[in-house]
Design a protein around this nucleic acid. Structure first.
Length: 478
RNA sequence: GGUCCCAUCGUCUAGUGGCCUAGGACACCACCCUCUCAAGGUGGAGACACGGGUUCGAACCCCGUUGGGACUGCCA
C-alpha cells in the first residue's frame, strides 16, 4: 500500500489502556480505514522510569479486543534512539539547539528579578556556546520569526507567536531525547501524513513543527486535535481517580462492539439521528472534519444502554458463548454453596434468551441465574427478600408454598401448566398472580427478581423445585 | 499569572443565516403491557451562557463579557 494517508497511534505504556486513548486510537483507525490509509502503532516508551512491558502488552491486547488492528508496528520508540541522537546532533550543529546548564530555581529567580511576565525559560544560555557536558540539557532555539500556525482539521488555524514559545528541552543531560524531539523525528521518518491526537497536545504542536522544519523541508502533516474526555467535574479523565481502564470495562462484561460504538459517538456523530451503527458503517460515515470541538463526558449509563442493545442483538448461541466465562467466574467466586457447573449450565441454556434480554452487561448473567447452579438445600436467600415476602407475608407465603407443593407433584411440567397451577393456588388465597408467585420465586431462586419464574422452574426440574419449596416451608415453619 | 482551546436539554449530540414554537439518544417522571425484573409502547418535563453588533432575518457570522478546560516538566 502506498500513496494513502499514514496515521499513527502513539501511546506511552504507563498504565492501563485508557478510554481516552482508546477513543484516539479508534479515530485514527476510522480515518485510516475510511481513507484507505495505513494505521501505524508506535509505542512512545522513552520515559524509562514509568514504562513497563506489561502495559505495552495491555495496550496491544485491548486494541485487539476492540478490533482496532494496526498495519505497522508496534514500533518501539526506544529502539529508534540512534535516529533521535542523530537528529539531536544535527540540530546542535546547525545552530538550532544549544546546551544549557540552568536549573529551575535559577531561572525562576531571574524571571522574578527581571519582572518577566511569562515565567518560562528565559533563554539565558542561548548565546553562551556551551558544549555538551555534565548537567547540560539540550534546548531548541525558537528564535524570532513568523508566528507558527497549526492548521487543525477540526479547529481551523491556531496561531502561536514565537515569543510565547520557550526554548524547550529536547534532550536530557544524559542525552536522552524527549517527547517533542522523538515524536517529531519518528513522524518524519515514518512519513506520517495526519497527526490525530488529544487536545492536550495542542500546545506542544507548534514546538514539534519548529523541530520538523529544522529537520526537513517536507510538508507538515495535517493535524487534528480531538476534544478531551472529561469526568463529571469536567476535568480531563485521570487514571488515578476515574474509572478509565478498558480492561475493567471488559471484565465487567461490556462488549467490544458496544464500547467502540459508544466511544465513536463521544465527539463525533454521523449527522443523521442514528446512534447504534456497525463498525463498517462508521467507517464509511466517518469524517474527521465533523469531530466536535468541545469536551465530552464519559457517561457509563449510556454505555450500559448501548451494551444492552448489543447484547440483545446477539444470537442466542453467541450470547451463550460470550456469557459463559462470566458465569464461570461467578461460579468460582461463589464456590461455597454451588453444585456442579455443568448441570447449572444445562439449565442456563434453557432460559438463556430470557436472561439475554434482561442484562445490560455479561457479568449480570450470574446473579440472575445463580440459582441454577446451587444445590437444592443451599439456596442463598436474600435476607431482604426473605423478610419482605416470607416473614411479612407469612400467611400467604405458607399457603402458596403448601398449595404449590401439592399441585406441582402431579400434572404437566411446562411453563403454561405451572403458571395456571400457581394462579389457581393464588386464587384460593385471594392473591393475584403477581403476589402469588413471589413466595415461590424466593423459595426457588432466593430473590424477588429474576428471569420469568415458570420457565426457570422448567429449567430446574420438578424434583428440584419441590425440594426447594419444602426447604422454604421448613425454614418458614421453624 | 501567561499561552491556547471550548460554550445547544442533567449527559452525548443534530443544527453550518430563514425548514427551529430547536430534532434524536441516555438518564428522569407518568401511563400501558406484564408472573418479578427487564425489554417494548405512549406521553411528559428539560437547552441555544450573557451583552453588543452585522443582517430583512441569527443557535448558526463578528466583537466583548462570563464560565469551564488544557498546557505552562530535564513526563508524554
Amino acid at each position: 500500500m502506498s500513496g494513502g494517508p499514514r496515521v499513527r497511534f502513539a501511546p506511552s505504556p504507563t498504565g492501563y489502556f485508557h478510554v481516552g486513548s482508546a477513543r484516539t486510537s479508534l479515530y485514527n483507525w476510522l480515518f485510516a480505514r475510511k481513507m484507505g490509509g495505513t494505521f501505524v502503532l508506535r509505542i512512545e516508551d522513552t520515559d524509562t522510569e514509568r514504562n513497563r512491558r506489561e502495559w505495552l502488552d495491555g495496550i496491544c491486547e485491548s486494541m485487539a479486543w476492540l478490533g482496532l488492528n494496526w498495519d505497522e508496528g508496534p514500533y518501539l520508540q526506544s529502539e529508534r534512539r540512534p535516529d533521535h541522537i542523530a537528529a539531536l546532533q544535527r540540530l546542535h550543529s546547525q545552530g538550532d539547539a544549544y546546551y544549557c546548564d540552568c536549573v529551575r530555581e535559577e531561572v525562576d529567580k531571574r524571571n522574578e528579578a527581571n519582572g518577566r511576565k511569562t515565567p518560562g525559560y528565559d533563554g539565558f544560555c542561548r548565546d553562551r556556546g556551551l558544549e555538551a557536558g555534565e548537567g547540560r540539557a539540550l534546548r531548541f532555539k525558537v528564535g524570532a520569526g513568523d508566528p507558527v500556525v497549526v492548521h487543525d482539521l477540526i479547529r481551523g488555524d491556531v496561531v502561536f507567536e514565537r515569543d510565547t514559545l520557550d526554548d524547550f528541552v529536547i534532550a536530557k543531560p544524559d542525552g536522552s531525547p524527549l517527547f517533542v524531539l522523538a515524536n517529531t523525528v519518528d513522524d518524519i521518518s515514518m512519513r506520517i501524513t495526519h497527526v490525530i491526537r488529544g487536545e492536550d497536545l495542542l500546545p506542544s504542536t507548534p514546538k514539534g513543527m519548529l523541530v520538523y522544519r529544522a529537520l526537513t523541508d517536507a510538508e507538515y502533516p495535517a493535524f487534528a486535535h480531538l476534544p478531551m474526555l472529561v469526568n463529571e467535574k469536567r476535568q480531563k479523565l485521570s487514571k488515578r481517580r476515574d474509572p478509565v481502564a478498558i480492561e475493567d470495562y471488559r471484565s465487567k462484561g461490556f462488549l467490544p462492539e458496544a464500547m467502540v460504538n459508544y466511544l465513536a459517538l463521544l465527539g463525533w456523530s454521523p449527522g443523521n439521528d442514528r446512534e447504534i451503527l456497525p463498525l463498517a458503517e462508521m467507517v464509511t460515515e466517518f469524517k474527521i472534519e465533523r469531530v466536535n470541538h468541545s469536551p465530552a463526558f464519559f457517561d457509563v449509563a449510556k454505555l450500559e444502554h448501548f451494551n444492552g442493545e448489543y447484547i440483545r442483538a446477539l444470537s442466542v448461541e453467541d450470547f451463550l458463548s460470550r456469557a459463559e466465562p462470566y458465569l464461570r467466574e461467578g461460579y468460582s467466586e461463589a464456590q461455597h454453596y454451588v453444585g456442579s457447573f455443568e448441570s447449572g449450565i444445562v439449565g442456563f441454556k434453557q432460559i438463556a434468551p430470557l436472561v439475554q434480554e434482561r442484562v445490560s452487561k455479561l457479568s449480570d448473567a450470574w446473579p440472575m441465574a445463580d440459582f441454577l447452579f446451587v444445590e437444592d438445600d443451599s439456596v442463598a436467600y436474600d435476607s431482604a427478600a426473605w423478610e419482605k415476602v416470607m416473614v411479612n407475608g407469612k400467611v400467604a407465603a405458607a399457603g402458596m408454598l403448601s398449595g404449590a407443593v401439592e399441585l406441582f407433584e402431579l400434572g404437566d411440567w411446562d411453563a403454561e401448566a405451572l403458571k395456571s397451577a400457581t394462579s389457581s393456588v393464588g386464587e384460593k388465597l385471594g392473591l393475584k398472580l403477581g403476589k402469588a408467585q413471589a413466595p415461590l420465586r424466593v423459595a426457588i431462586t432466593g430473590k424477588t427478581v429474576g428471569p420469568p419464574l415458570f420457565e426457570a422452574m422448567v429449567a430446574l426440574g420438578r424434583e428440584s423445585v419441590l425440594s426447594r419449596l419444602k426447604s422454604a416451608q421448613e425454614k418458614l415453619g421453624g
